[in-house]
Computed example of a mutant assay.
Amino acid sequence: MKINLNGLFFAHFAPRLWKRTVRVVVMFTMKQIGEAVRARRKALGLTQIEAAGLCGVGERFLRELELGKPTVQMGKALQVLSGLGLKLSIEAGGR
Rank of each mutant, 00 (worst) to 15 (best):
M1S: 13
K2N: 10
K2E: 11
N4F: 15
L5R: 06
G7M: 03
L8E: 15
L8D: 15
F10I: 14
F10T: 12
F10C: 15
A11K: 14
A11P: 14
R16V: 13
L17S: 13
K19V: 11
R20S: 15
V25K: 12
V26D: 08
V26P: 08
F28N: 08
T29H: 06
T29P: 06
T29W: 04
I33M: 11
G34R: 05
G34L: 05
G34M: 06
E35M: 12
A39G: 03
R40W: 02
R41H: 02
K42C: 05
A43R: 07
A43W: 01
L44F: 01
G45V: 03
T47G: 00
T47L: 02
Q48T: 05
Q48S: 04
Q48L: 03
Q48R: 08
I49A: 14
A51M: 02
A51K: 00
A52L: 00
G53Y: 02
V57P: 01
R63T: 12
E64Y: 10
L65D: 01
E66Q: 05
L67F: 05
L67G: 07
G68F: 02
K69G: 08
K69N: 13
P70H: 07
T71L: 07
V72W: 01
V72F: 03
V72D: 11
Q73T: 09
Q73M: 10
M74Y: 13
K76H: 08
K76L: 07
K76P: 01
K76G: 04
A77Q: 05
A77L: 10
Q79G: 07
Q79Y: 10
V80S: 01
V80T: 01
L81V: 04
L81C: 07
S82L: 15
G83L: 04
L84Y: 05
L84N: 04
G85Q: 02
G85W: 05
K87V: 12
S89G: 10
I90C: 06
G94T: 13
